[in-house]
Design a protein around this nucleic acid. Sequence first.
DNA 1: TCAAAAGTGTTGGGGATACACCCATGT
DNA 2: ACATGGGTGTATCCCCAACACTTTTGA
Lengths: 242, 242
Amino acid sequence: MRLARRASADEQVARRPRLLGVSGKMGENDAIRVAVSTVIFSLRSAPEGDRLMLPLVRRTREPYRGAWALPGGWLDAAENLDAAASRTLAETTALDPGYLEQLYTFGDVDRAPSRTISIVYWALLRSDYVDAQRSASDAPENVEWFDVDAIPPLAFDHNRIADYALDRLRNKVGYSRIAASLLPDEFTLTELREVYEAVLGRRLDPSNFRRLLEGSDELVPTESFRTGKHRPARLYRYNADA
Amino acid sequence: MRLARRASADEQVARRPRLLGVSGKMGENDAIRVAVSTVIFSLRSAPEGDRLMLPLVRRTREPYRGAWALPGGWLDAAENLDAAASRTLAETTALDPGYLEQLYTFGDVDRAPSRTISIVYWALLRSDYVDAQRSASDAPENVEWFDVDAIPPLAFDHNRIADYALDRLRNKVGYSRIAASLLPDEFTLTELREVYEAVLGRRLDPSNFRRLLEGSDELVPTESFRTGKHRPARLYRYNADA
DNA sequence: TCAAAAGTGTTGGGGATACACCCATGT
DNA sequence: ACATGGGTGTATCCCCAACACTTTTGA
């Protein structure tokens, strides 16, 4: 599968003259704070079928008190970046991600009142875990899921970050098998195709989709079938190795 | 000093209680320092033809004093990330990059004696600028160019970083037109092909390469020809728009 | 028996590769 | 003239989109 690539927009910024003598030694970047945020995606049932959604948290502090924002927190001096992302993810959803990858580091001087750089990760969650948690109603407070096509205005530059993560997800779905991370262990080809359709936002030909994935070594057929209203569909699982 | 702690992406790390009443508020990550480094690529003539090379700087301080390292410096509290990358690049080569993009942020707890995260960029430099500077012998001190196939042991985790940047360059050359940034404004198709060959490390069919790029809208033929030992070759330039 | 989803077969276009071949120039 | 790189033509293969078609189930 192939789809259009995205080009990151990076602007050339003119060299800023350094005021020597302001700080004695190099390495004294006292005023810089380091945050880690995560854009979390999962599928959730909606009237129009499964929709790609992400959780946002309502801010309880200034600045942007009361606004929606991406889950995140300050980097602890004794934890790795991946660990910080996992931690903030767990604090938000109490769930293990099936996929977690660093996205980009945002650090414009004016993106927050005090100089803050945000190392942003993105993650995929299995839809059945999320649904189970919702029905168990032990979901964390101040967290709400939003359709990626209806994200409200967010605090800081988080709208830009969420858009960037969505681009990356859509791009990467085209050439890797991360879609697995949004589904339970076993699934039908139609369910997998619907994941691709929800992520990409367009319909795919069922027969070509079948051939494409059956031809690859990524899927392993099982002996089980999902029975429903019509002809039963074979269940598949992802090939763990290669 | 702090002991190294390795955490996988899935590991849930409990929030470590913060010692000291220096600050009770979140957001005081006092012990974390932020560096910006850049992996710079350019083509340089070698006996076997043009080779892809990168500049390294010799460290004059502990740790790793005397070892080769990637160019970089501390992030200034008043400059954007891109600006910091441009600045460290200018300090190393005194040249403007034709291409500059953020690569990844490395932040393992044990990657340096004191907790340091490095926001790494990668850049491409026009070969004619680099050659001109070399002959003008106003090159910066303590800087030396190395073939990407013969990178010496580097300080910190810089070998891993350089390998990562090289992967990204080779991958991106396949689907984008960044190769332009390694050449002067005008060039022949053979010169452009040799750039691709130097980057990818394999030979390409001249006729297919020609058709590929003439068919795209990326190249604009000029009326000039490069005369040499044989039939003159038409000069092209990259299409500025789209 | 019919609707609908599961699953198969067939065709054709476009891009990539391999390679035969002609063209223009300096020596 | 001839060697060498510049440049053109063309056949083949493979991937994949399009779509007609058959199979299997629940109702």
